[in-house]
Computed example of a mutant assay.
Amino acid sequence: MQTSTDTAVERRVFHLNGLELSVTLAGEGRPLLLLHGFPELAFSWRKVMPKLAAAGYHVIAPDQRGYGRTTGWSADYDGDLAAFRLPNLVRDALGLVAAFGYTHVDAVIGHDFGSSVAAWCALIRPDVFRTVVMMSAPFSGPPSLPFNTANEPAKPATDDPVHRELAALPRPRKHYQWYYSTRPANDDMHRAPQGVHDFLRAYYHHKSADWKDNTPYPLHSWSAGELAKLPTYYVMDLAKDMAATVAEEMPSREAIAANTWLPDRELAYYSAEYQRTGFQGGLQWYRCGTSGAFTAELQTWSGRSIDQPSAFISGKQDWGTYQRPGVFEAMQTKACTKMIGCHLVDGAGHWVQQEQPDEVSRLLLQFLARAAQ
């Protein structure tokens, strides 16, 4: 991972938990673990890693299971999803910490789906993950166990009616996470008519602060009428795939040439990797969630909260903060009991550490200093 924004960055491969885990490193000192989201890579931390390293940290950023140069995972749609469930992703992170000879890290920092992994790391092993920063995807806590059912059995789980309601709207819609769980989703993006590079350009643009219609606000409920207010990268037109959805928002050549947070030479790193691997590895994570197959396991931690110092950082222009109604508020009032920072960074959409790396680095270092007091 070498670009003009990098200093003292190297890549190493570790054999753990069935993987050959590709890890990007910077600096020396107290350890930090950085976990990327979808569709990203360790490369998404390229602008903050040197700043954290310069402040005296050993920064560790893997290509997570299903992504990039990490191997040992299967992209078979019909394969076993269990390897991609959240506790096993926590096991990957735990093994990486141990591989370096650390008993703990000062912070686990996750973005997008990596934010969920970071939150579960903190919840399951607070002794190892001493603090946590969640970025762009708030955490509402573990799912609840059926309660007070001794005399009245719990009602069986049913399909969420919101998907039928979305499809029945005058403008029929579908939720992107359930689309990502379908068999065609990988081919739709990997074999996008515009090519992987232009697909990713439009996707990153559509979810960034550069797309001027990203003006998020809280939604009132998990209902079709409310969810339909989300941009099409979250609640898609029913008949369109993701490649067609974002193609409608492809920036102009002039806008691409003027882009400083993701110039074409850096986008080319992502597009080359995803052209090589496809997207299915990351899509397996979504399938674990939408299938409901692993909810019972996650209920093992029902009622637990994140009690070590925590923080949340997102872009002010990021709909991800509000895409699940009530979660942003539940994170601050219930799921995290010692949240010492909650920041919405102006001038950033979903890719906050890429769009506004200086401010994100400042907030991370401020959090680490406060948590150490």
Rank of each mutant, 00 (worst) to 15 (best):
T149A: 12
H205T: 06
R11F: 08
W178K: 13
A257S: 11
Q177C: 09
A258G: 01
D106F: 00
G141W: 07
Q284W: 04
L32A: 04
Y269D: 13
Y203G: 03
D210C: 01
V128L: 05
R304Y: 07
Q2F: 12
D198C: 10
E249W: 11
S221L: 11
S221K: 15
A247Q: 11
S310I: 06
L365G: 05
A192H: 05
A53Y: 01
Q177Y: 12
E359C: 01
L364S: 04
N148Q: 15
G56K: 07
K334T: 15
P325Q: 08
G101L: 08
R30T: 15
H205Y: 15
Q366M: 13
S140P: 13
P31A: 09
D63A: 03
D63W: 00
A185E: 03
L200E: 02
E165P: 06
L81T: 07
A330S: 09
C342D: 08
D160R: 12
P325D: 02
E329Y: 03
W301C: 10
R125F: 02
K207I: 01
D264Y: 11
H220P: 01
H163A: 11
K174R: 15
Y234D: 06
K207E: 07
A244M: 09
G110H: 02
A209N: 04
L267Q: 12
T5W: 13
A311M: 14
H220T: 08
L52V: 09
G101H: 10
K316P: 00
R91F: 00
Y274S: 05
L25E: 05
Y286G: 02
L21N: 09
N186I: 06
K334P: 07
V117P: 00
T295I: 07
L219T: 04
D63C: 03
T70W: 00
D198F: 05
Q299I: 14
R46M: 09
A83Y: 07
V48N: 00
F139E: 06
Y274K: 08
S314H: 00
A268C: 10
L219Y: 08
G29D: 04
W285D: 03
Q308C: 10
F43R: 01
I313T: 05
Y67K: 07
T103M: 01
P218M: 05
E226S: 14
V13K: 11
F14C: 09
G281M: 06
R30N: 12
R173F: 05
E226M: 10
A257N: 07
Q284T: 06
D76N: 14
V105T: 01
V90C: 01
T3H: 11
K155P: 06
W211A: 02
P216G: 10
M331K: 09
T300C: 08
D318I: 04
L368C: 11
A118Y: 05
D112R: 00
Y204I: 01
A243V: 13
D188W: 11
K174P: 07
Q275N: 15
F100A: 08
P153F: 14
I60C: 05
R12F: 03
L41D: 01
